[in-house]
Design a protein around this nucleic acid. Structure first.
Length: 764
DNA sequence: TTAGGGTTAG
C-alpha cells in the first residue's frame, strides 16, 4: 500500500518519469494492477500524455472496475477527446460493470454534444433527481442547446431542489446563446444569499464578452467576494477589448489587495502590454515575471512571444518560438508569422507559412494581410485564390478585409467585384470595418457611385467610414459632397479628426472651392501643419499665390515639406518661376533626397523654356546620386493585372502596343497636335529619342487597353506616381482620337479623360 | 463530487 501512496503523491513532473514508473510497476508485477492503473491515469491527465499511451495504461488493468473507467473519462475530458467517450461507455456495458452515481455526471460532461443521448438513459435509471447528474444534464443542454430543454429541467425543480450551480449554468447558458436579457433576468431572480462568487463572475464575463465593459465593471465592483478567477474575468475582458490601460490599472489594484496572480492573470497582463507596444513596459513586466518565479505554461509563453514581437524584439520572440519546439500550436506559428509580416520581412513570414503543417484561417489571414500591408497587393490576392483552392480553411471577414483593400490599392474593379461576390457566396457578414474596406475599394477603383451606395446602406458608420468616403470624394474632386458629408457626420455626433479635415480641404482644393475651403479651415479647432499645407495648396491652385505665401510665413508652426511642396506645385500650375525657385530651395534643404522636388522644378523651367536651367537641375540630381524613381502603371483585363514600367517591352503584346502607339502619333500629327514628348525633351524632332529613353508607363498601359478592350468600355489605368504634364496632354488627345473614356488614377487623384478634355481642367 | 477566467489575423 505504501507503494501506491508513493505513486499517488510522488512528484512525477514529466512523461519520462511516468514511463519509468510504469516500467517499474510492470516489472514488480504486483497484484494491485487496478489501483496503480487508476493512479497512473491521473498522472496522464495532469501531464497531457498522448492518448495512445494513456490507452495502453488503461488496457493494462486485468479486472477493470468503475474507478478505472472514471479515471479514463477524466483523462478524455481533460484532453477534449469527446469522441472517445461513447465507445468507452459501450466497453463498460460490454464488461457488465455497473456505473456508480458519480460516474454519470462525468460521463455526461465529457461526451460533449454526444452526451445528449444520455439524457433519456439517466431518466430511465431514475437518476435525474440526483443533484450532480441533473446539473450535468442541464449543463449539456445549456452548452450545446437547445437551451429551452435546460430551462425545462430547471423550471421543473422546486426552489428547494435547486442548487446554486443550476442557476449558474442557466445564466452562463443564456450568455453563451447571446441572450443577455434572460441571463440578467435569472440573475435577478436569485436571492442574494443564493449567489456565489461564480454567479457574479459569470455576469462579469458575459458583459465583458459583449464588450460592454462598463456593465462588466459594475458587477465586478458589486461582488461581495472575489477570487483569482473573478479578477481574471475582468482583466481578460479589458485585455480582449483593447482597453490595455484599464487592464494594467486593475492588475495593480489586484496586487494591492494582496491577490495572488496566476498564469491566466499574467496572460491578460502580457497581452495588454502587447497592444500598447511599449518595449520599456515589456521589459519591466519580464522582470516582474522573473521576480515572481512565474511558471509559464503554453498560454503565457505564446502571449510573451506576441508581446516581444509587438514591442519590436523579434529575436526574443523567435527564441521563445524555438524553445517551444514540439509544443508549438498553430497559434504560436501564426503569432510568429504575423510578427515577421508586421516588420515587412515577408520572406521569413512566408518561409514559416510554407513550413506549417496545419494552417487555419488565421494563418492565411496573417500572411495575406502581411502582403497586403506591405504593398504587395497582387501577391495577397494570389494567395487568397490559393486559400480558396486549398479548402483547408474558410475565408472570413478578416480575410476579405485584406483582399478587398488589396483590390482597392490595385484599382482593380473587376477583382474587387469578384471579392464582393465571394462575400455573398460564403455568407460572410461584414462589420463596420468590412464595409469601410468596400468604400475604400470602390473609391480607389473610381466607382464613387458604389462607394456612396455602400456608405448609405450601412446601418451604423464610424469615423473611418466618413473619412474613407471623404478621401474618395477628395481624389475625385467632389468638393461639395465632401462638405455635405462633414456636416452630416457632425449631425450624427461623430467628431471629425485631422484626417477628416485633410480630406475635406483636399476635396475643396481639387474642386477649386476657395470660400468653402476657407470656411472649413476656420472651423478647425486647432489646425495642424497638414491643414495649413492643404490651405496653401487650395490658395495656390486657384492662383492666390501671394496669399499662399503669406499663409506659409504666418503659420504658427514651422512649415514642413508638404507646405512648401504645395507652393512649388502652385508655382508650376501658374508658371511662377521665381516663387518655384524659392519653394524648391526650402525643399532641397528639408528633404534633399526627394527626387520629386527636382523633377517639379525642372518641369517649371521646361514650361518656361529655360532649358539651361533644366539641365542644371538634372546635373544636380546626378551629382547627388539621385535617380527619378520609376513609376509603373497597371491596367486590369479579364481579372488579370497587367503591369508596365517605363519603356516596357516585356509584355507579350509589346509589338502590337508599340505599333498602335506609332499609329496614334501619326494621327495626332495629321490632326495638327504636337505629338507627345517627355517633359524635358526640347523639340518635336527629338521625339524618337523618347523611345530610347522610354515611353511612359501610362501610355503603354492605355495602348494595351485600347488593343484588348471593347469599344464601349471605359479604360481604367492606375499609376503609382503622378501623371506627368505631357502624358496628361497626350492622353487627352488619345481620348479624342480614339473616342474612348479613359480614367487614370495617380497616387492621389483621378483624371477622367473624354473627348479631348480632362475632368480636372483647372489642374494643368 | 456542481458553476466562472487564457494566447494569434484586421
Amino acid at each position: 500500500m505504501s507503494l501506491l501512496n508513493n505513486i499517488a503523491t510522488s512528484r512525477i513532473c514529466n512523461l519520462y518519469h511516468l514511463t519509468q514508473l510504469h516500467a517499474h510497476l510492470i516489472h514488480l508485477s504486483l497484484h494491485h494492477h487496478n489501483q496503480w492503473v487508476a493512479l497512473l491515469l491521473l498522472h496522464c491527465t495532469r501531464l497531457h500524455a498522448p492518448p495512445a499511451y494513456a490507452a495502453s495504461i488503461f488496457h493494462a488493468a486485468t479486472h477493470p472496475y468503475i474507478h478505472i473507467f472514471t479515471s479514463m473519462l477524466k483523462y478524455y475530458s481533460q484532453i477534449g477527446a469527446h469522441t472517445e467517450v461513447v465507445p468507452l461507455y459501450k466497453h463498460l456495458q460490454c464488461l457488465g460493470i455497473k456505473p456508480d452515481i458519480p460516474f454519470y455526471p462525468l460521463l455526461i460532461k465529457s461526451a460533449g454534444k454526444a452526451s445528449l443521448m444520455f439524457h433519456a438513459h439517466v431518466l430511465k435509471l431514475g437518476y435525474v433527481h440526483d443533484h450532480y447528474i441533473r446539473n450535468a444534464v442541464i449543463g449539456v443542454y445549456a452548452k450545446y442547446g437547445p437551451i429551452e430543454l435546460a430551462r425545462k429541467l430547471f423550471d421543473e425543480m422546486t426552489d428547494r431542489n435547486r442548487i446554486t450551480a443550476d442557476w449558474n449554468l442557466m445564466i452562463s447558458g443564456y450568455w453563451k446563446w447571446g441572450n443577455e436579457q434572460e441571463a440578467s433576468r435569472i440573475f435577478h431572480l436569485m436571492a442574494d444569499s443564493e449567489r456565489n462568487v461564480i454567479t457574479w463572475t459569470t455576469m462579469v464575463t458575459g458583459y465583458a464578452k459583449l464588450r460592454n465593459l462598463d456593465s462588466a465593471r459594475l458587477y465586478f465592483d458589486r461582488m461581495p467576494e472575489r477570487n483569482v478567477i473573478s479578477w481574471n474575468a475582468m482583466l481578460s475582458g479589458y485585455a480582449q477589448s483593447g482597453a490595455a490601460e484599464e487592464a494594467l490599472t486593475l492588475f495593480n489594484d489586484m496586487i494591492d489587495s494582496r491577490n495572488e496572480p496566476d498564469e491566466t492573470t499574467w496572460v491578460a497582463v502580457i497581452s495588454s502590454c502587447s497592444s500598447l507596444g511599449d518595449p520599456c513596459l515589456a521589459e519591466s513586466l519580464i522582470k516582474k515575471l522573473y521576480r515572481n518565479n512565474v511558471h509559464s505554461n503554453h498560454y503565457v509563453k505564446t502571449a510573451l512571444l506576441d508581446m516581444h514581437a509587438k514591442c519590436g524584439n523579434l529575436e526574443a520572440a523567435q527564441s521563445i518560438f524555438d524553445q517551444l519546439g514540439v509544443h508549438r500550436s498553430s497559434i504560436t506559428w501564426n503569432a510568429m508569422i504575423s510578427a515577421y509580416a508586421r516588420v515587412g520581412d515577408l520572406a521569413s513570414a512566408r518561409d514559416l507559412f510554407d513550413k506549417m503543417e496545419k494552417r487555419d484561417t488565421v494563418s492565411w489571414n496573417s500572411i495575406i494581410a502581411g502582403y497586403a500591408q506591405n504593398g504587395e497587393s497582387l501577391t495577397a490576392i494570389d494567395l487568397f485564390k490559393e486559400m480558396i483552392r486549398s479548402k483547408d480553411s474558410r475565408a472570413d471577414e478578416v480575410t476579405m478585409l485584406s483582399v478587398i483593400s488589396a483590390c482597392g490599392h490595385l484599382g482593380a474593379l473587376e477583382l474587387g467585384n469578384w471579392a464582393v461576390s465571394i462575400l455573398k457566396e460564403n455568407s460572410i457578414n461584414l462589420s463596420i470595418s468590412g464595409y469601410n474596406s468596400m468604400i475604400f475599394m470602390y473609391s480607389r477603383c473610381g466607382s464613387m457611385k458604389d462607394a456612396t451606395r455602400i456608405f448609405q446602406e450601412m446601418a451604423t458608420r464610424d469615423l473611418v467610414s466618413y473619412n474613407t468616403l471623404i478621401s474618395g470624394y477628395a481624389a475625385h474632386g467632389h468638393g461639395k459632397e465632401s462638405i455635405e458629408l462633414l456636416s452630416k457626420m457632425k449631425k450624427e455626433g461623430i467628431k471629425p479628426d485631422r484626417i477628416t479635415y485633410i480630406g475635406v480641404l483636399t476635396a475643396c482644393s481639387h474642386a477649386g472651392l476657395l470660400q468653402e475651403g476657407q470656411k472649413v479651415f476656420e472651423s478647425i479647432e486647432v489646425p495642424e501643419v497638414d491643414h495649413y499645407a492643404c490651405m496653401i495648396d487650395l490658395l495656390g491652385r486657384v492662383g492666390k499665390l501671394e496669399e499662399a505665401t503669406r499663409l506659409i510665413q504666418s503659420m504658427p508652426m514651422k512649415p514642413h515639406a508638404g507646405s512648401y511642396g504645395s507652393l512649388l506645385n502652385a508655382s508650376r500650375i501658374h508658371r511662377k518661376v521665381r516663387l518655384g525657385e524659392l519653394a524648391a530651395a526650402k525643399l532641397f534643404k528639408l528633404e534633399p533626397y526627394n527626387t520629386g522636388n527636382y523633377v517639379l522644378l525642372s518641369n517649371i523651367y521646361a514650361l518656361a523654356g529655360r532649358w539651361e536651367d533644366v539641365d542644371k537641375v538634372r546635373k544636380t540630381m546626378r551629382k547627388q546620386g539621385l535617380k527619378k524613381s520609376t513609376g509603373w502603371s497597371w491596367v486590369e483585363h479579364e481579372g488579370q493585372m497587367h503591369k508596365f514600367i517605363v519603356g516596357d517591352r516585356s509584355h507579350e503584346k509589346s509589338d502590337d502596343i508599340y505599333k498602335l502607339l506609332r499609329e496614334i502619333r501619326v494621327k495626332m500629327r495629321r490632326e495638327g497636335y504636337v505629338a507627345d514628348r517627355s517633359c524635358v525633351l526640347r523639340d518635336v524632332e527629338e521625339e524618337d529619342k523618347e523611345e530610347i529613353v522610354g515611353i511612359h508607363s501610362e501610355k503603354l498601359a492605355i495602348c494595351f487597353a485600347l488593343l484588348v478592350s471593347q469599344m464601349g468600355t471605359v479604360i481604367r489605368v492606375v499609376k503609382n506616381l503622378r501623371v506627368c504634364g505631357d502624358c496628361h496632354t497626350s492622353i487627352k488627345m488619345i481620348s479624342k482620337l480614339e473616342g474612348r473614356k479613359i480614367i487614370v488614377r495617380d497616387n492621389n487623384r483621378f483624371h477622367c479623360f473624354s473627348n479631348g478634355l480632362c475632368s480636372c481642367k483647372d489642374y494643368w
